[in-house]
């Protein structure tokens, strides 16, 4: 296969708005990912209607929800900060987001999950099927979000971002918001109905 040009400078690449393309792709990705959670939600209702066991630890559920919502707020602050080149604020808020996210994860994996079987909620049968699959899939996404934000944080420390170039920050924080929005639907579906 021959190539007509050997140097890119004389070849004209049309001026695509790289940022616009990336954003469009990101939204398509969010749409697709959201279906995973929709399916789990539908499964919950198909199998168990709107009922749920009384024994759920509501305090714990509320606590981790507040933590996650708080982390979205700090994430928002972080993104706004870097958009205005306020690097210290950006890093501080990003770190806070990471810590809060990690706290959420620990709350789910180290406290909620071991406790649930003692309350009669097991992953193999009954409501536990929905409970563990939904919190599990969500926690998997929270974990990947935390790892992503960690990478962004480390890069941020090295000065990789500025107000005219912070796509990595924008994308990962949007992902974080996405994961939070999922929980906004999951929490009531599991705890409040």
């Amino acid at each position: 296969m021959s190539t007509a040009t050997t140097h890119t400078s004389a070849v004209v690449h049309p001026e695509y708005d790289r940022l616009a393309l990336n954003r469009f792709g990101l939204w398509l990705f969010f749409f697709s990912e959201s279906l995973i959670f929709l399916i789990l939600l539908l499964t919950r209702f198909y199998l168990f209607g709107t009922s749920r066991p009384e024994e759920l630890n509501q305090t714990l559920g509320l606590a981790i929800t507040v933590i996650l919502l708080l982390s979205s707020f700090t994430a928002y602050r972080a993104e706004t900060a870097i958009a205005h080149d306020d690097r210290p604020q950006f890093l501080r808020n990003l770190l806070a987001t990471i810590l809060l996210g990690t706290l959420f994860l620990l709350g789910v994996v180290l406290v909620e999950w071991p406790e649930a079987p003692r309350l009669g909620i097991v992953p193999q049968e009954g409501f536990g099927i929905a409970f563990f699959s939904m919190t599990g899939m969500h926690a998997f996404h929270v974990l990947s979000g935390v790892l992503l934000l960690l990478m962004v944080y480390l890069n941020g420390r090295r000065g990789a971002y500025s107000s005219d170039s912070y796509w990595g920050v924008e994308a990962s924080i949007k992902y974080w918001h996405f994961v939070d929005v999922v929980w906004v639907f999951f929490y009531p579906a599991l705890y409040l109905l």
């Binding site: 499964t43 199998l47 992953p123 193999q124 049968e125 409501f127 099927i129 563990f132 699959s133």
Partner: peptide
């Protein structure tokens, strides 16, 4: 997950439903 962790999504004995699979 049903095979690996025993989560009975589609097992009526565990509260699951075999038809659910077909819908999804």
């Amino acid at each position: 997950l049903e095979r690996v962790l025993g989560m009975g999504f589609f097992d009526p004995a565990k509260g699951g439903d075999a038809v659910l699979f077909q819908h999804i």
